[in-house]
Design a protein around this nucleic acid. Sequence first.
DNA 1: GTGACTCTACCGGTTTACCGGTAGTCACCC
DNA 2: GGGTGACTACCGGTAAACCGGTAGAGTCAC
Lengths: 214, 214
Amino acid sequence: MTIRIVLADDHRMLRDALVNMLSAETDLDVVAVAGDGPSTFDLVREHAPDVLIVDVGMPEMNGVEVAQRVHTHFPKTRILALSGYTDKRFVQEMFKAGAAGYVTKAAAASDLPRAVREVARGKLYLCPGVTGSIVADLLPTSSGSPPPLSVLTAREREVLRMLADGERSLAIAESMSISLATVEVHRRNIMRKLDLHTIAELTKYAIREGLSSV
Amino acid sequence: MTIRIVLADDHRMLRDALVNMLSAETDLDVVAVAGDGPSTFDLVREHAPDVLIVDVGMPEMNGVEVAQRVHTHFPKTRILALSGYTDKRFVQEMFKAGAAGYVTKAAAASDLPRAVREVARGKLYLCPGVTGSIVADLLPTSSGSPPPLSVLTAREREVLRMLADGERSLAIAESMSISLATVEVHRRNIMRKLDLHTIAELTKYAIREGLSSV
DNA sequence: GTGACTCTACCGGTTTACCGGTAGTCACCC
DNA sequence: GGGTGACTACCGGTAAACCGGTAGAGTCAC
């Protein structure tokens, strides 16, 4: 009994490598691959896969949105989330959006076929690295990993990048054709969402997230 | 003739999948894998690989720092950067840090073995997505390397470190038992000596010089 | 329609950073 | 002795960041 899979991740290298690995499993068949949300939706419609593996952090239309729409329109397709983050907010969001499984990129690659088989069988799957996050709600979030970049909107990310590149607010305002006050609003939102307090902290966050270079 | 590789990426799933794929090539041998900067450096020292594949966006000690250190201490190991970004600044930073190749995660997975072979042969490699205007920009930079940390006095270095750690001037004054005005003097001296203009730039300088972590 | 979110913009006010300069003391070197 | 740099501290003033709040318009899901 072959499990038919659609795989969605914006990083082609990871896609290719995972397809290569999944295809080596005799009971798994990757019928389509997608690099963004909209084409993921289209391919699910076209192929009606048993399992959709979807990257949580895809740009534009992210994994949560994809999962919501696929779950609504194609409830028979089981959704397995693939994520760079163990943060429980993302786990909860994906399950709320209709996912049946959650695997992080910190997991061993060999966990993926197992996760696929579990969700295809109608079970819920959480990879070992995130079970604690969900079960132990008592853990303080301050000791967890920093918020992901995807909590920021596109405009906020742009402001973040430019601040971290050493630009002043007035220059950013001119560059983005907005008022200084709006830059300030974005900067506040960034600081609040990411719990940062100085430009030095902000700069480091941007560097860590790959948004700005050292 | 086997090319010996160390692969460094904080996402284990990608690591596993890429190792799986590279190992299928008869002339490639992944001798070690690392998930962070410091252990990457240790493994390079231990294994003396022909090629280090390093993810640019690793947390804490990122790919640029890893490349700089590996290039300085193990110049025979060729460095191939693996990155989620095609932005030319990342490319420039990695080449400046000593990398011989740059492959983005948007590239096909099949590009990776080819890139490895090219850099192992002593050639420079740029994956197709970032050639073009990048090459022109890789011409020798008119600006020289930044001033060394040794142009700063001990007190100035202390102020630099604390600013880069996200402390405010008043807190630094209290911590060092000096007046706010003196902190200001030190900050000015730092900016002048290093030709920096914003705290973001200062933070990055401190990170590059190993005075503050990301 | 309603609520939430995003983007835009503003107010008044405070705090901090920044910048031109000043200067004293000390240690070191010529 | 004189010059220089480091460390300390200050002046008056400006620029920028920061912070409490306000609000309208557009979009989208419910």
